[in-house]
Design a protein around this nucleic acid. Sequence first.
DNA 1: TCTCGGTTTAGACTCAGTCTAACCCACGTG
DNA 2: CACGTGGGTTAGACTGAGTCTAAACCGAGA
Lengths: 149, 149
Amino acid sequence: MRPTKPTKPTTASSVLSEAELLERHGVLPSAQRLAIAQYVLRTDEHPSADQVFAKVKRALPMVSRATVYNTLNLFVDKGLLRAHVLAEGKVVFDPNLAPHHHFIDEETGAIHDVPWSALAVSNVDALEGFDVHEYQVVLRGKLKKARST
Amino acid sequence: MRPTKPTKPTTASSVLSEAELLERHGVLPSAQRLAIAQYVLRTDEHPSADQVFAKVKRALPMVSRATVYNTLNLFVDKGLLRAHVLAEGKVVFDPNLAPHHHFIDEETGAIHDVPWSALAVSNVDALEGFDVHEYQVVLRGKLKKARST
DNA sequence: TCTCGGTTTAGACTCAGTCTAACCCACGTG
DNA sequence: CACGTGGGTTAGACTGAGTCTAAACCGAGA
């Protein structure tokens, strides 16, 4: 609507270019920010900041650690990412903004998303003395080695 | 049972002295370990290791950080404590060994226990592909300023 | 060209936590 | 009683995640 600036007629929000995504969230794009966005907004690996740093460095070798940290925090501020503290001593980033639960593989430490609808928590609203703003179930265990990858 | 060694007929496990508690869990008592136990096994503050260190230092000023860390990890190994990673970059220790949930005050960062029975999570056993060993609900929000403390 | 604001950079710094090597001390032995 | 042995403790060095800072960079406008 209002094609003052001819923004590409994007079909759906999920096929926006990273540049558009950033702009829509009030983040000025830059080469570094785009490189970071291209990885971290599309992954389901729940990477830590240093993992993002390592990954982005391959595409953009001169990028600095500070920039990666700044950018990730900026993305969290602007609502492009969520940060979770789940595992030992590390903040991990998650582009999945919809509420969901997390399963942590006790053997590998890998984090998997569990769809919100897969579990139901009853009684949250009735909790005495707590005004709950958000919640999630954190599960730990082993991956079942069933069929399929 | 089998009172080969006449262990004191303790009324309930919750009134054991720290020294007895440690011994029962296979931990040789020492002045430092007792001082740490006296605080950390009785608190509901969910302290971090450095908070324990600060607290214990008042009672036993020559204690070293390494000892506190060693001892806390030893207690976790021996099942006297549980460690949780809930808040930003800190491991907190919790003498409450029974399963329970946690509520994190978003304003102060304080952690409160939520009794296991206060919430119910359905469908955990039916989760596809995950062999869940333990889980908890992590809630975030504000404390309701209602009556009572 | 000059300036200005925002971005990036390297490196110093902080903080939590671990590691190491020396030390202490109670105990058992000759 | 000297000696060795083995926990436990200690200070301090070290590591790894993350923040801070000051300088450099860069693109847009005057």
